[in-house]
């Protein structure tokens, strides 16, 4: 549910106060923030359909998917788990997605497909069209679950810091970090089971969501590192809705072994 009206008034009041008190904040920023979609209880509302997170600057993949910017990486931890893992020639290892195995998070989030978010007071649900990756993020203050086996998409919990939704995800399975493997097979990047991700999600303006992702993998990196992305709202895609993606339906070339035509 989106409500704009009441906050236009509030925004104008804030703007007037800022100008009166001489705060050095551009008026345009307040005007933009006042227009972001909000729920009836005043929280930013991310409900809608978006393009996948795209890098702000930095290198681009020779593909549509977004990749991580290696200049953002923290130094590798001496004696830590290997970040770069060579191919073995076994497609079950080298490309499990060819067998319809999950891309996992955060890799799947960067795939070049539509992303729909559905929000209510207690949950944000992020559904990615690729593999129908679904993350149900509690925002009611509950802690992470305990005693779970490691998972492809981890265990997320969210909380609000002002207009920013902060999502911490833990309990990952060791898995591919991103799709850079496809641009340079020498740099097949893996994260460890110790991975913890922190997402900062906020509206940058009325049509763009700022999506900041922090990678904290203490078995691989000497410290946490962060990369900034943007997600463009696509109301036209929202009208179309997400399409089904059942990989097992007709996967004719699993691991490169195709059925005869």
């Amino acid at each position: 549910m989106r409500s704009f009206g009441p906050f236009l008034g509030a925004g104008a009041a804030v703007l007037a106060a800022a100008l009166f008190t001489g705060l050095l904040v551009p008026a345009r920023v307040h005007a933009q923030n006042a227009k972001i979609p909000r729920t009836s209880d005043g929280k930013p509302d991310f409900s809608g359909t978006f393009e996948w997170p795209k890098s702000i600057g930095g290198p681009t993949c020779k593909c549509s998917a977004t990749i991580f910017d290696k200049s953002k990486f923290a130094p590798l931890k001496a004696g830590g788990e290997p970040f770069f893992e060579p191919r073995t020639g076994d497609p079950q290892h080298d490309e499990p997605r060819s067998f319809c195995m999950p891309a996992g998070f955060p890799s799947g989030m960067l795939s070049a497909n539509a992303v729909q978010m559905v929000q209510n007071k207690n949950y944000l649900v992020i559904v990615h069209e690729f593999q129908r990756m679904t993350r149900i993020i509690p925002m009611d203050g509950r802690p992470h679950r305990e005693g779970l086996e490691p998972m492809f998409y981890g265990d997320p919990v969210g909380h609000w810091e002002g207009d920013t939704l902060v999502v911490e995800t833990t309990n990952f399975k060791r898995w591919g970090l991103d799709d850079y493997y496809y641009t340079d097979p020498k740099e097949y990047r893996m994260h460890s089971e110790a991975l913890r991700t922190i997402e900062h999600i906020k509206w940058k303006d009325a049509s763009t969501v700022s999506y900041q992702l922090t990678i904290d993998d203490p078995k691989v990196f000497a410290g946490a590192w962060t990369q900034d992305f943007e997600m463009k709202a696509r109301p036209d895609w929202d009208k179309m809705g997400l399409f089904e993606y059942i990989c097992e339906e007709n996967n004719r070339c699993p691991g490169g072994k195709c059925k005869e035509p």
Binding site: C63, E95, S98, D179, Y182, G255, G256
Partner: peptide, 12 residues
């Protein structure tokens, strides 16, 4: 357009 490998392109 610098499109290249799909997640399964290189494998298949």
């Amino acid at each position: 357009l610098p499109l290249a490998a799909h997640h399964s392109f290189n494998a298949e």
